[in-house]
């Protein structure tokens, strides 16, 4: 009975997500110049990393061995992998509840049988992921490996043949990332102060750490030992570091990949269970207190 209901709820949530996605897309599609501008902007964003990377063309760090000590190739690959996590709107834990849960729609949600958490956490995120992330991956792939690689002669020295394994692994880590975001968002529900100032400062702090230790920009060897330990708590770090290991032509890298995979699996379970439980409790709490909508300070 419960399973049937859950499946039915999920189906309605997906349907609603499709509706939002279709309507949003139809609105965005009218702004055709905007699509071109987004594309150009994406290239310019990469270009800034290109210039930074170009300053350090030859750096002696163990992680860069796969890239012939070429930091530019390292940062370009990191940027490509990071797109999987960034484009789907996963990096906005503080905005998640402000926008979706504490808006006036929350009261409307509460009076309908559709579970707002199911819609937001699963259906809407998956559709965002499929819709926007895949588009971004294609754009980035073309720009990085096509334009930069071909015309600027960057030697990536990675196993492109591993792409069919890397992409599913990144998606797997991205789901863990969704749950990590859920856990971070739950803090917002449990802290009146955070809701009042309308800013999830804790999530902001962790995001800054995540940015440093994710392996997207800095090879982890250059980090202090203390910060290196943080690479084990962020799903994005498992994704980027693990994917780099899969891309690596060295056989020993594959062995080093498995601990990252296990860490991602543990995070998926722990963050998922704890996050959903705490969000449920948090929503129950704000409803009980009647503080569903806290006027921002």
């Amino acid at each position: 009975m419960k399973i049937t209901r859950a499946l039915s709820d999920f189906a309605w949530a997906v349907r609603l997500s499709f509706m939002f996605f279709r309507f949003q897309w139809s609105i965005r599609a009218t702004f055709k110049t905007g699509i071109i501008i987004s594309f150009v902007n994406s290239v310019l964003g990469l270009l800034s990393w290109f210039f930074i990377g170009n300053m350090f063309r030859t750096v002696s760090v163990a992680s860069l061995e796969n890239y012939d000590q070429n930091y530019l190739a390292y940062v370009m690959v990191g940027s490509f992998i990071g797109t999987v996590f960034g484009a789907g709107g996963f990096f906005n834990p503080s905005g998640f509840f402000q926008r979706d849960i504490f808006g006036p729609d929350f009261k409307r949600w509460s009076m309908s049988p559709t579970d707002p958490m199911l819609y937001n956490l699963v259906a809407n995120r998956i559709l965002n992921f499929v819709g926007y992330t895949i588009t971004s991956i294609v754009i980035q792939f073309v720009v990085i490996f096509g334009i930069f690689g071909m015309y600027l002669n960057i030697d990536f020295n990675i196993r492109f043949s591993m792409m069919p394994v890397v992409i599913p692994y990144l998606f797997y880590c991205a789901i863990a990332q969704i749950f990590y975001e859920t856990l971070m968002s739950s803090v917002f529900l449990h802290s009146y102060a955070l809701r009042a100032v309308n800013q999830n400062v804790l999530a902001g702090l962790l995001n800054s750490i995540n940015h440093i230790v994710s392996g997207r920009i800095f090879p982890i060897e250059v980090l202090p030992r203390l910060l290196r330990n943080f690479t084990w708590i962020f799903p994005q770090a498992q994704g980027i570091i693990g994917a780099r290991m899969l891309f690596s032509p060295r056989p020993e890298s594959l062995m080093a990949f498995w601990p990252r995979f296990i860490a991602a699996t543990i995070q998926l379970m722990v963050y998922g269970g704890l996050g959903i439980w705490l969000v449920d409790k948090g929503i129950e709490k704000v409803r009980r207190e009647g503080l569903v909508q806290v006027p921002p300070a």
């Binding site: 039915s8 509706m19 006036p104 729609d105 409307r108 559709t114």
Partner: peptide, 28 residues
């Protein structure tokens, strides 16, 4: 079936017809 005059819970980016469809799907 709620009609709360103070609850401005329509999606502004959608048309009126789309909002009605959204409301229906929310209510299964």
């Amino acid at each position: 079936v709620p009609i709360f005059g103070w609850l401005d819970a329509v999606t502004w980016a959608f048309t009126g017809r789309q909002n009605i469809e959204k409301f229906m799907i929310m209510h299964h």
